[in-house]
Design a protein around this nucleic acid. Structure first.
Lengths: 150, 150
DNA sequence: CTCGAATTGACAGCACGCTAACAAATCGTC
DNA sequence: GACGATTTGTTAGCGTGCTGTCAATTCGAG
């Protein structure tokens, strides 16, 4: 019989620590390319197809308002362009500019390098297993924590 | 042969999502007791023994400055007391007041209840396995991300 | 004992998450 | 077509993480 309460606390603290570690890594990769971790994430969300603020927010699991501020900053920096949305006059579609794409490309090699180091550290089998474990835990938490309606 | 880069991104995004979920839960538990997730964490850190700001920060993996602000707020609210430190005149030790302990006690039943729900959702064996996976990943990331000197 | 290095607390300011509240646009039902 | 409900963008303000910088204190090498 385990102490579930103790286990929960320990898992939460570990997740908080991992969040900090991944954020540190992302920041370290993004900053040399003239981005931040957050801007990289937003820019990355519209690489495949243009999306609205609200769509990006839903996919990233954060609020529309947070996306908006970041998107505006990226637009000010000329990395993100607003294009008209045929199906909604007010909700413009966001897509990277050439400058934005260049920033993403600049990150790519360093990103791959760190991924390689993690794979070396963990081994391929373990990396897959741990990734699956994260997904499993997320799924369980999703069931217990209903999403906000907004 | 897996795509390590893709895997890394996916793991990072899942950790970010888990961070948000655990934070939402913690906030939901803490607020009814007159705390926030952060204040609960700081108060929880000095339950066993009084610690200085810097010691709390190291254990929580955050900066001294963040702990300081939270500790000051808890002190203003009468939940945290500063007691003299025999081995350092400037670095006072922090410990919960009776009011602080009462807040922690108020959280306890709800905390246990959520832990029970998670155990029910996952099953005991899986809960242990996922917790161990988190710890494993943290250890690997710790090796790749050297701590700041401060 | 002395003096430079390291630790600690304090204060200021920034980044980015959040909620709250509103108007504009769209959707759905009648 | 009309009208209430929903979605979207916008603005404002707060919480809490971070970095930078400084003075006070303690530690450690000589």
């Amino acid at each position: 019989m385990i102490d579930a309460q103790e286990k929960l606390s320990s898992m939460a603290l570990t997740v908080f620590a991992l969040n900090g570690l991944f954020l540190t890594v992302a920041e370290g990769l993004a900053v040399p390319a003239g981005l931040t971790a957050t801007r990289w994430q937003v820019l990355g969300a519209v690489l495949r197809e243009p999306l609205t603020q609200a769509e990006i927010a839903r996919r990233m699991g954060i609020t529309r308002q947070s996306v908006q501020r970041t998107a505006n900053q990226l637009a000010e920096d000329g990395m993100l362009a607003m294009i008209p949305n045929p199906s909604h006059r007010k909700a413009m579609l966001l897509q990277p500019t050439e400058k934005g794409l260049a920033a993403i490309r600049a990150i790519h090699p360093q990103h791959a390098a760190f991924a390689g180091r993690l794979k070396t550290e963990l081994g391929e089998e373990r990396m897959v297993r741990l990734s699956d474990a994260l997904t499993e835990l997320r799924s369980a938490m999703d069931h217990l924590v209903p999403a906000e309606a907004d």
